[in-house]
Design a protein around this nucleic acid. Sequence first.
RNA 1: GUGGGUAUAGCGUAGUUGGUUAACGCGUCAGUUUGUGGCACUGAAGACCGUGGGUUCGAAUCCCACUACCCACCCCA
Length: 437
Amino acid sequence: MAEPSIKRPKGTQDITPKEVNKWQTVEVACKTTAEDYGFSEIRTPTFEDTKLFVRSVGDATDVVQKEMYTVTSKGDSEFTLKPEGTAGVIRAVIENGMLNEAFPQKLFYLTQCFRHEKPQAGRLREFHQFGCEIIGTKSPAADADLIMLAADVLERIGIVETKLNINSIGCPNCRAEYIKALREYFSQYTDTLCETCISRLEKNPMRILDCKSPICSEVAKNAPVILDYLCDECKEHFDALKGILDAMEIEYRVNPRIVRGLDYYTKTVFEFICDNIGAQATVCGGGRYDGLIRELGGADTPALGFAMGIERLLIAAKRGRAEFIDRASCDIYLASIGQDALLKTAQLARSVRDIGFIAEYDIVGRSLNAQMKYANKIKAKFSAVIGDDDIKKGIIKVKNMETGKIDNLRLDDSFAEKFGDILTDYILNDDLDFDCL
RNA sequence: GUGGGUAUAGCGUAGUUGGUUAACGCGUCAGUUUGUGGCACUGAAGACCGUGGGUUCGAAUCCCACUACCCACCCCA
């Protein structure tokens, strides 16, 4: 305590045992839903060659320009902690020759990401993403399946109040036309637009559509709409997607304003918005990135994906109707009186643990009373007290902590198995009672 | 990077015309209760009142600065 205490870095968090069950609930929902859709997990490094993100996420994006944690390692290599999940996955797919395997490749990941931003609700410097990628299909059926998967994940977690927004931002060809038209339109308003939007006019006029400044968004209201500029192929793709979503009764809103901030997106883009979780309301974002694999040196392959922010899912889940799984509680607490008995409880605990149940005993040196209080506190289902007499007699009383019912068990090799039977009965009966209710 | 808010035990809070030893609830530990927990009662530990200055006989309380956290802009998941 003499030294100044060391605190965790800004924008990071500790996930304590009280919270970790909520994380696990969300993680399990993500993982099992993805697996139900035929996705396999992929894990990639926490840091990558900086060039990977510059080339995929995009040179001019905020993420690359001002949010990356980049270090120069021994030697000349520059590495960056991953600011998002897709780039690393695509790099790995190319590097491991997975483009030669059967298409589509369907992959999911659950990973921490890092961006140097100013923290606020739903935005941290180290955060966690769940993402899914489908590689090797240009069919709009894939877009629809991916969106359905995202919707299912949210539903299974218990997040109900989300809105799906979709848009198409076209392919490089038709987008060029559109950007030209946008520039022409916004150029008329150079005296009213905000400063950042003026600079966007040159670099990326589509971002002006996203600006929340009242003046800019007022001007943007009458701006040309991308959907009017889509080429035949892009338009067909988008119409087909809408058709499938309609057929599957997935509600959506076409929102021509959604423009993703990462450069690799093409054609379909979408967001799931959750309004009651603060300003950072996008709980899931994704879209197509048909040009990315080629850009990263792989064969020209269409692909698409989405990412969800686990922290945001968690906020939404707490506000929604999520039911969080609890950690399994202790099956039996073995109290001891005296040193010989302590050794005995240690042996018994191990035998119970060997058959897959949770057993604890006194490793603190507490009085019997205190041991029992502790057993109660950790919600032990059963308890047993062992003293010299019991060891002599070779029989101990196992008590059901809920009902107070006591069973006598032999203190020999059969103990664990017999206790297992009692516990199984208890759990089955408990389920029956539950069903009757 | 720019705003706004907050800062008192592990957690949640009370504490303003400045006045002895900073209070309460929860939690933790122990005892009542060396062969049985929950309830109850008793007690204990735990706070340099965010940090540093200033005003004052006297500051958790007033003033200034700093820091941290939260929220929002921006950006995005």
